[in-house]
Amino acid sequence: MPLKALEVGFHYYNGPWVVSNFSFMINPGQIIGLYGPSGSGKSTIARLLAGFEKPRAGQVLLDGKPMPVKGNNPVQLVLQHPEKAVNPRWQLEQTIYEGWRPNAEIMDSFGISNKWLKRWPNELSSGELQRFCVIRALGPETRYLIADEMTTMLDAVTQAQIWEAVLRIAARRNLGLIVVSHEMSLLNRFCHEIVNLDSYDRSGLVYN
């Protein structure tokens, strides 16, 4: 079941077009990088593909059908700032189980300490929180994972650790990965294909 974007366009209420005429396709098992500097609309594309925003033009199709609005979405998005993506009033155990109940092996592969489960988000660093956000998104129904600058705010060691685990799980489950980043060296490391958004014509867009 491929994930497709057909001539998608998006703008916020009364605002200028942030994304226009963008087409894209990915199949299970593929790893595609979306490269672009900040302000190039790549985060918006990530949100459109994950169904966080509805396109103002064109459509996003999963397996030839429009994205489901309800139910567990087979396309999951992991965002740049984990501290905003977890409920500050929940213990992390609750946060991770909101998605599914991962086994100990998966927790281990992300280097998660059992003690963290009973912690509150403000007691952990963003590198630690991001591991929870990634696992939460990797439930059994997930087919595509979109990582929007997922490890940009993390140190290199944690970055490598998270990607190692994600790539292993993606390969085992034949997931499709869309890796959104402004860092070419990261994308070059493991992407099968890289889409350069800088080469899209986006005249009229200014610095963010």
Partner: peptide, 12 residues
């Protein structure tokens, strides 16, 4: 909030 949108996409 991001975590509310995430919850929606987790089918809540």
């Amino acid at each position: 909030a991001d975590y509310i949108q995430v919850a929606q996409k987790l089918g809540k």
